[in-house]
Design a protein around this nucleic acid. Structure first.
Lengths: 231, 231
DNA sequence: CTAATTATTGCACCCGATGCAAAATTCCAT
DNA sequence: ATGGAATTTTGCATCGGGTGCAATAATTAG
């Protein structure tokens, strides 16, 4: 690792290496939080994501190697894989925020309204909402996804990760508030809502929050189905 | 390549290698079709898929190497990649059937019924239907997908491949028969219908055709939305 | 300041995937 | 059938992603 002077005192290194400055500033971002270890970890993670996104934006996904990203971030290539499972994860800044416990409980107990689709919407909103800090990275990730379709697999990746949890969740709710839909279908429906919201957000020039476009996504879905029913 | 005697006459090789027999029988499957070249290509492809699926079912996805698959199929590893872009493709027996021209034309012209969801259903049906020969391979692929979630990316992969085409299609139809839904959303909706149908087919013990379960998938979707509307 | 915990790094290694050119095979015209 | 054109197979070299392992360095706790 790059030696910051031994105990974090006096970061007076005159070195012009951009990496160091970036890490330093990232370190200042959240100054009074957790131990040094935790802060550095967050900082490095951020630096790696930024490096990955910048390089891919400039050269394209396949032309960028993990070695380049690590170099730009001032870190050993081996360390890269301490932070991400794959190159793509870094480019996407994959955030692994879980569903909050109370949202889950509410949903399982028949959700805020008892109407499945509406309650699903609440669930998805909680997934779309909190990433306040990573906002700008999600934006960049969206842009990159357009140019590098391979990255779209993110949503599937995400789905795989949470599928078992979601399925549990659906089955649990089913007992208190019966419905017919297959759990697998609902899982994809969640992905559909997330993705549609994000795309709408992108099309709106990234104004506001992704979650702001969730009602629109639901409305689209309802529209497609309703038009079929009325005729 | 394994030398079958020089001109395809006299396949009287007494070699007990299972590979050869398998290829030979596969060759007999469609005896009067195309040239020898074309038939061998199909046959080899089939042998490779079978080998891949068998090995993965036995050892798991990560424990199976392209080298093993090629060996089992009696083919050079380099040749493997003449047939598939990736190991996963072989395991899935990725079929790249396009939409037939008339189905496309009908859909673009406002589809059989003019109701978007119903017409989408027709479109999806044409994707689910024809793979008569590969039926059994799709079954195996479904089973493997349960044990190896990585393979789920297939649908995304498929989506990526056809997305531009689908988007064109949707936009073209939009001009003759306006609707509000975003093309991106409809694309995912297609994936949802395909996947849901396949899962339903699997849950039904692979009886009949995947397409048989498409109406059920649509019904589920309608149910979710309609229940939200009525209350 | 020391000892325990945790993170970084280098190294060796495996495998998936691609480009290239030589050898083998199939096709086609005569 | 036979020779040359077109296409496929194959070996070889190479690159890059990703992992296990053990040594080293940094952080933390006492």
């Amino acid at each position: 690792m790059v030696p910051t002077s031994s105990r974090e005192t006096a970061p007076a290194d005159a070195e012009p290496r951009p990496t160091l400055r970036e890490l330093a500033s990232a370190l200042e971002g959240t100054p009074a939080e957790q131990g040094l270890r935790e802060r550095k970890k967050r900082a490095r993670r951020g630096v790696l994501i930024d490096a990955a996104q910048r390089l891919v934006a400039e050269h394209g996904l396949d032309a960028v190697t993990v070695e380049m990203i690590s170099a730009e971030a001032g870190v050993s290539p081996r360390t890269f894989f301490n932070y991400f499972e794959s190159k793509d994860d870094a480019v996407l800044g994959a955030d692994d925020t879980d569903l909050s416990e109370d949202v889950v409980r509410t949903f399982v107990d028949g959700g805020p309204t008892g109407r499945l689709l509406t309650d699903l919407q609440v669930l998805v909103a909680s997934l779309l909402a909190p990433h306040g800090e990573a906002h700008v990275r999600v934006m960049r990730a969206m842009d990159l996804m357009q140019q590098e379709p391979r990255l779209l697999q993110r949503h599937v990746f995400w789905m795989e990760r949470h599928k078992s949890r979601l399925v549990e969740l659906f089955e649990a709710r089913r007992e208190t508030t019966p419905f017919n839909a297959d759990a697998e279908m609902l899982t994809i429906l969640v992905v559909l809502l997330i993705r549609t919201s994000l795309v709408a957000w992108e099309n709106a020039g990234f104004t506001g929050d992704p979650a702001d476009h969730l009602p629109g996504a639901v409305a689209q879905l309802i529209d497609v189905v309703a038009r079929d029913l009325e005729s």
